[in-house]
Computed example of a mutant assay.
Amino acid sequence: MDLSAARSSDENPTPTTAIKGAARQQLVKVGAAGLSLEGVARDGGLAVTEVEAVFPHRDDLLTALVIDAYDASATAMEQADRAAGDAGASAGARLLAVTRALRQWAFENPGEFTLIYGSPVPDYHAPQDTVPAASRTPAVLAGIVRSGLEGGELTPPRRAVPGPPLLLPAAVELFGGVPEAPFSDIIERGMVLWSNLIGLLVFQVFSRTHDSVRDEAAFFDYAVAVAAESIGLVVSPGESSD
């Protein structure tokens, strides 16, 4: 690799890179609702026309940031899962590794975390283009649950929750089909796990637990372990995937 070329690239980012970098600063300073092309241009030392040449409308820029945030957070999880899997970790240890990776990403990128998991931006409706990136996070969790199921690592639920089928075909497809009893509602349980994870991260990133627990990282591990019980997966708080 030509290091001098790499340094030159870092020092002279492309207009798109510079715009996105300035926009991420805006997310932290004013939030997604306050994002404007004028503010991005000002923070990036660019003319508004330069920004508009790449992103004609604010929503175009928001969509790009949303996709980047989903992709970056999912990449962190995928890398953690790959490392844990290469180390021969159990499904429970893999789950702990990927949730920790998502937590670390969220704390390192609070503006982007808030963009995708915080309050909706008024008058902005994420287009279909964001769906593939948004699907990567649940896909990581689904892969771990599926692996645990196929490897005999899941404990059958104590009781089935009665009710009609609740799943859309896309959710079933993402998991690879509906398993047979006693795990026939494992996809619904996995979605509850996913919801609990995001809610827990919202609490921690927005400082809703700092005045209630002594060790927020340890509490995070504990909460993941409790949530994992609903799908019959054993997670040991404090466990290492190495």
Results as ranks from 00 to 15, higher is better:
236 S>N: 13
50 E>A: 15
65 L>Q: 04
154 L>D: 11
111 G>S: 07
9 S>Y: 11
241 S>K: 03
176 G>A: 12
87 A>I: 11
105 W>T: 01
171 A>N: 14
98 V>Y: 07
48 V>N: 06
144 I>K: 03
99 T>F: 03
156 P>S: 04
175 F>E: 00
96 L>T: 04
133 A>D: 03
12 N>M: 12
149 L>Y: 05
2 D>M: 08
140 V>G: 01
51 V>T: 08
79 Q>M: 08
53 A>C: 02
196 N>D: 15
200 L>Y: 09
60 D>W: 00
225 A>W: 05
82 R>D: 15
199 G>M: 06
96 L>H: 09
231 I>G: 08
23 A>W: 10
167 L>K: 03
226 V>R: 12
185 D>G: 06
170 A>C: 00
150 E>V: 04
165 P>H: 13
117 Y>F: 15
28 V>W: 09
36 S>Y: 12
27 L>K: 02
7 R>W: 13
144 I>M: 05
197 L>M: 13
136 R>A: 14
179 P>E: 10
11 E>P: 00
159 R>M: 13
112 E>F: 00
143 G>Q: 04
7 R>M: 13
141 L>D: 00
88 G>L: 10
240 S>H: 12
74 A>G: 12
208 R>C: 07
119 S>Q: 14
107 F>A: 06
114 T>I: 00
94 R>G: 05
155 T>F: 08
18 A>D: 00
51 V>E: 03
120 P>Q: 10
99 T>Y: 07
92 G>C: 09
130 T>L: 01
80 A>Q: 08
3 L>P: 15
63 T>A: 02
195 S>Y: 02
229 E>G: 09
183 F>P: 03
121 V>R: 08
56 P>L: 09
10 D>T: 11
233 L>K: 01
99 T>L: 01
79 Q>I: 12
230 S>C: 00
195 S>C: 05
46 L>H: 10
231 I>D: 01
174 L>Y: 04
47 A>L: 12
10 D>C: 14
99 T>V: 08
66 V>Y: 12
106 A>V: 03
38 E>H: 12
163 G>I: 11
41 A>R: 06
44 G>S: 04
119 S>R: 13
93 A>S: 13
115 L>Q: 06
210 H>W: 05
154 L>G: 10
160 A>Q: 15
159 R>K: 12
129 D>I: 00
162 P>H: 05
17 T>D: 15
68 D>W: 02
137 T>A: 10
113 F>H: 09
184 S>E: 15
105 W>I: 08
179 P>W: 01
